[in-house]
Amino acid sequence: MSIDWYIALSALLFATGAMGILLRRSPIVILLCLELMLNAGNLALVAFSRMVGNQQGQVFALVVMVVAACEVVVGLGLIVAIFRRKLPLDVDELRELRG
């Protein structure tokens, strides 16, 4: 099977995630979309790794998974904190850092 399909799928997933981040306002959905983008990257790494024939790309994919797990911990923690303080769970409402 040609590498093209893998890359196309990866690009599709990445674009979906990016569109989700740009269009959705719920922090949870944004977090999900971020995961989608990371995994699109992972897919591309693994596919290239298969094509080249060594394991380095797959190792990178594992590292990205670890980073993603950490990021989810922080992100979810923030969301819980926002919820606890009874702030709106809406990124357009949370704009106190306006310059």
């Binding site: 990016a18 981040i21 740009l22 990124v91 357009d92 949370l94 704009r95 106190e96 306006r98 310059g99």
Partner: peptide, 17 residues
Amino acid sequence: VRTVQSGFLRSYALLLI
């Protein structure tokens, strides 16, 4: 320059992307 710092998370994301 300050007008860029709108506080809209999604506009930052758009700029980045």
